[in-house]
Amino acid sequence: MADVIVFWFLALVTVGSGLAVVLLPNPIYCALCLAMTMVGVSALFVTLGAYFIAGVQLIVYAGAVLVLFTMVLMLFDLKSETNAFSRGVITGAIKVACAGVLSGLIAGAIVMTLGQRSSVVSPLAEKSAIDSTKALGKLLFQENVFAFEALGVLLLVIAVGTVSLARSKGGTHAKH
């Protein structure tokens, strides 16, 4: 019973703060609500038994990425933020309607598909945190070690590229 209450609470937290990201006009509040969503998603990972991934989610997303977002927001002077939302009531309504239709389609497809194959819905045996992390480590460092190394190279390229991009003087639109 406890896990049911935890799931509904976390669903409420993630969906509520996700809605706040869409609706709040101030970008700083959006960033803070996004951090709340990330923490909720991390707790959802714990309820699903992915303990290592939950820790990585907290460190990488709620720690690094969101701090980066907030720092860049603080760097800009956005006090004069006007027109937070796109103009046009009709196009805005069409966009919201498209989002609603998409979510309805996805949810309907999920529920209808899972009704047919009920065997998937039954929960499997609980594994301890050490077991699941051990299995993930074996998979990562033995079978997919080249992908892991490729990720390392990617991160190096991204670091260099980010610095050069932030230092560039406008590229093709440079003022002469």
């Binding site: 049911v4 989002a99 929960p123």
Partner: peptide, 29 residues
């Protein structure tokens, strides 16, 4: 709580992301 609950929650969050990309005008948001 089954698989479909998590999938529906995931779909809702995804659609919120889509709505954010479509509706907001601030690049960082």
């Amino acid at each position: 709580i089954g698989l479909s609950h998590y999938l529906v929650l995931s779909a809702l969050l995804f659609v919120m992301g889509v709505a954010t990309v479509l509706l907001r005008r601030n690049l960082i948001v």
